[in-house]
Write a protein that binds this DNA or RNA. Structure first.
Lengths: 219, 219
DNA sequence: ACAAATCGGTTGTTTTTACAACAGAAAGAG
DNA sequence: CTCTTTCTGTTGTAAAAACAACCGATTTGT
């Protein structure tokens, strides 16, 4: 677990906490390291958890497949990001989505009650972590609202424009690389892949944008 | 403001805190009461806030109108509920949505930094409120994920089934009243009202459900 | 290097939605 | 009570999406 301390140090949850302090907090927060092969489930819909998790290597998708096999990618989790924060309340109930490793990944689990309760051994950075947890949840809430903004658009074209504009804004550039292939982007925007591909090409022909693979440029 | 103490007492944010303690916390948290007429904006897209707000009377919609006049209802806020929690991080940026009073409403604003920072005057219930804030945000995150589940459905019928099933589950009954009229439901599910109305009637004719006004029964 | 799997684009057909326009019912205002 | 406004259902049409099937290119695994 020690080799991931530098990752944790750069994570949102431990921002502002030194490596030595993180080390001492690991046991305080009951940290457990788990490894997953590409394609494995980290969490399954229906499970109950009482942990906050931080991804320290690899990449994850929060997704859900319905009865008809339609996959919906709710969220993407990158190294240093936290997840599980929607289920910290005791009465949260079962997980609504699967969390799947789309690359070989390592995840550290933390006991959420130990984070929220000030420990008697007085870790001096505990309050920093509590505040970081607030900000992380807040940030993720905002991302969900952004995504709702995309999905609330009526047509595939509007959804694409909403998403791509957002990415351009995030990158401070009209030229950027998206973290999805076509099928994943379609699953993320909840549209049909071929229809989306078709629409993208139409938009390109109309001079709205250029793309090659995952690299896009808005014009 | 005092007349709303009983409401705050029943709110998620102040759960477990007595009326007298709430009273003393009001100044500690820099509480400010604002009133709004039906139709007025509580918050506007683009504004910056550093507060957490609790609705103490009336009802609010979190919504957004796009360039073409399509309205999207992101969320509904009822008495005792908190909002603004997605913007508590210092770097949160501008509000993404409007918050509009759909009835005459009263809202209490709290300084978010005073909630998150333990006050020197040692309100003994401060840590309770901090934990409540965690649970509230967590709960709202979960609601957003639920809504994403509805919007990620491809057809109007599937969206309706997803939403109505959820409501039935929440009410522990196949028979329930929804808090939206047809136009609002359409805006909430991001579909066209007439098409939705049409689909609802088809579903009724097929024997999937019954409804009269806002009262639905799944069969 | 070769076979297999994945990926992205294309096309045609069917289904579904958006849009517009209208009418009866219900609710609200004066 | 009457007039006005809002709400809901209905219909027809045009636009868009889903679906299915296919192909060439690229990537992956052995």
């Amino acid at each position: 677990m020690k080799k991931f301390i530098p990752i944790l140090k750069k994570s949102r949850l431990f921002a502002g906490v030194g490596a030595e302090d993180i080390t001492s907090m690991l046991s305080c927060l009951d940290a457990r390291l788990h490894s997953y092969k590409k394609g494995e489930n980290v969490l399954r819909q229906g499970e109950h958890i009482s942990d906050i998790m931080v991804l320290v290597s690899g990449e994850l998708h929060v997704q859900r497949d319905d009865y008809w096999g339609n996959r919906s990618i709710v969220n993407r989790i990158t190294v240093g990001e936290m997840f599980g924060e929607a289920y910290i309340a005791p009465e949260s109930g079962a997980l609504l989505n699967d969390v799947v490793a789309i690359e070989d990944s390592n995840v550290i689990f933390f006991d959420v009650r130990r984070i929220m309760t000030v420990c008697s051994s007085a870790c001096k950075f505990h309050s920093t972590v509590v505040q970081n947890l607030f900000f992380s949840i807040s940030e993720k809430t905002k991302n969900l609202v952004l995504k709702l903004g995309h999905l609330s658009k009526r047509t595939t074209r509007e959804k694409l424009i909403s998403y791509l504009s957002e990415e351009a804004k995030r990158n401070n550039s009209p030229s950027f690389v998206i973290p999805f292939n076509r099928q994943q982007l379609a699953d993320f925007l909840s549209v049909d892949r071929s229809a989306m591909s078709n629409e993208l090409c139409k938009m390109r022909d109309e001079g709205l944008l250029e793309f090659e693979k995952n690299h896009f440029r808005l014009l």
